[in-house]
Simulated scan of single mutants.
Amino acid sequence: MPDVLVAGETLVDFLPDSATPLAATEEFARRPGGAPANVAVRLAQLDRPTWFWTRVGTDPFGDFLAETLADRGVPDRFVERDPSAKTTLAFVSGDPTSGPRFTFYRDGTADTRLESGRVPDDALDAVEWVVVGSVPLASDPSRAAIVDLVDRANDRDCTVVFDLNARPELWTDADFAAQVDRVLPAVDAVKASPEDLGPAGVEGDTDDIDAVASQLHERGPHTVFLTLGEGGAAARATADAPWGPADASHEGFAVDAVDTTGAGDAFTAGVVDALAGGERDLAAVLDRANAVAAAATTRAGGMADLPDPDSVV
Rank of each mutant, 00 (worst) to 15 (best):
A269F: 05
V79Y: 06
V258S: 07
A246I: 09
D151T: 09
F104H: 05
H217P: 03
R288V: 04
T261H: 13
A274Y: 01
D259V: 08
D240Y: 08
P199K: 08
L275Q: 03
A289Y: 02
P245G: 07
A291P: 13
G262V: 03
T109A: 13
R299A: 15
A274Q: 05
D256T: 14
E230C: 00
D259S: 09
A296I: 06
G108N: 06
D175P: 02
T112E: 12
E169P: 05
R288H: 14
D175T: 12
D140P: 04
G264T: 09
L184T: 14
A192E: 06
N38K: 11
V180K: 02
G201E: 03
G277Y: 02
D273K: 05
F176G: 05
R219I: 02
L124E: 09
A186V: 00
A296K: 15
T298L: 10
D247P: 00
L164P: 01
P168S: 02
L149E: 05
T109L: 12
R236H: 14
N38M: 06
G198E: 15
Q215G: 01
A233T: 01
D265L: 11
L275T: 07
R236V: 15
D3E: 15
F91N: 13
A7V: 09
G220V: 08
D281P: 11
T206L: 15
W171Q: 04
A263H: 04
V212M: 00
T109K: 13
A300E: 14
D207H: 10
D82Q: 09
D205H: 06
L306K: 07
D308F: 03
D305T: 14
V6F: 09
A213F: 07
E195Q: 15
A283I: 05
P21A: 05
D13Y: 10
P49N: 03
R77M: 00
T172E: 13
D210Q: 09
A300G: 00
T10D: 09
Q179M: 14
R182N: 15
E195M: 12
L149F: 05
R118G: 00
A284F: 01
D207N: 08
D181C: 10
D148M: 03
V292N: 02
F104Q: 02
V258D: 05
Q45F: 01
T112M: 15
L197S: 08
L164K: 02
L197F: 07
E251G: 15
G229V: 06
